[in-house]
């Protein structure tokens, strides 16, 4: 199972990530869609209107042959925020910027491949330097709740998995020789049989 593999229609992560709104500017007029823009009373959306639309919509509008919108990169991926991360990635509370920081960065519509590649490279650098926090707090499975605000969802998932592994190792070290437990599947089969009888 892969943590970042969410290119599936039913992936909950994908749905949550693409819910994020990004700023877009319409290039063409859209008849009868004026209700999307709460502040205008016109029936149509005029060209050059700026609107925050969810990523899934922006993505679909970008994919068409002629571009209907011009979208702007979210501010957390802009240079000023990049500088903060470059200065010291470990002390940033990534969770407050965006729960799905990495996923969002990778999911943004592709404009120029070069730009996207740079962003992905940048995310990789951030992840690499923040990996230390995960590694350190993995050592202590009874982790402090303070840390939870600092990590993004992806990092949290990784940490939870690491912690459970560590916990298993600790119990093994304390208990020593013990019986290997029956797998859940086998247990359930027995229960099912009992139900049938």
């Amino acid at each position: 199972m892969s943590f970042l593999n969410f290119d599936s229609y039913f992936s909950i992560t994908e749905i949550l990530v693409t819910e994020e709104r990004i700023q877009a500017e319409f290039e063409q007029s859209l008849p009868n869609l004026g209700y999307l823009c709460a502040s205008s009373k016109k029936d149509d959306i005029a060209p050059k209107t700026k609107l925050d639309i969810p990523l899934w919509l922006a993505d679909a509008l970008c994919r068409r042959g002629e571009s209907i919108i011009n979208w702007e990169i979210p501010k957390i991926f802009k240079d000023s925020y990049k500088e903060i991360l470059e200065a010291d990635a470990c002390s940033v509370e990534l969770c407050k910027w965006n729960q799905y920081f990495y996923e969002l960065g990778l999911r943004l519509p592709r404009t120029t491949t070069d730009d996207n590649h740079k962003l992905a490279e940048f995310l990789l650098e951030v992840f690499k330097s923040r990996f230390r926090i995960i590694m350190d707090s993995e050592q202590n499975p009874f982790s402090t709740p303070l840390l939870r605000g600092q990590l993004s969802t992806l990092e949290k998932k990784l940490l939870v998995q690491g912690n459970s592994g560590k916990l298993q190792l600790l119990t093994w070290l304390n208990k020593g020789v013990k019986h290997i437990e029956t797998s859940d599947v086998i247990d359930n089969i027995r229960k099912r049989k009992r139900l049938v009888v």
Binding site: L4, Y102, I134
Partner: peptide, 27 residues
């Protein structure tokens, strides 16, 4: 085994980012 719970997945994430979110060759 003690690093199995953390490292392989972290490396997987890094590989994914290196390829810019596109499915990797393996996938």
């Amino acid at each position: 085994n003690s690093i199995r719970s953390l490292l392989p997945d972290a490396l997987d994430i890094m590989l994914h980012m290196e390829h810019g979110g596109k499915p990797t060759v393996l996938q």
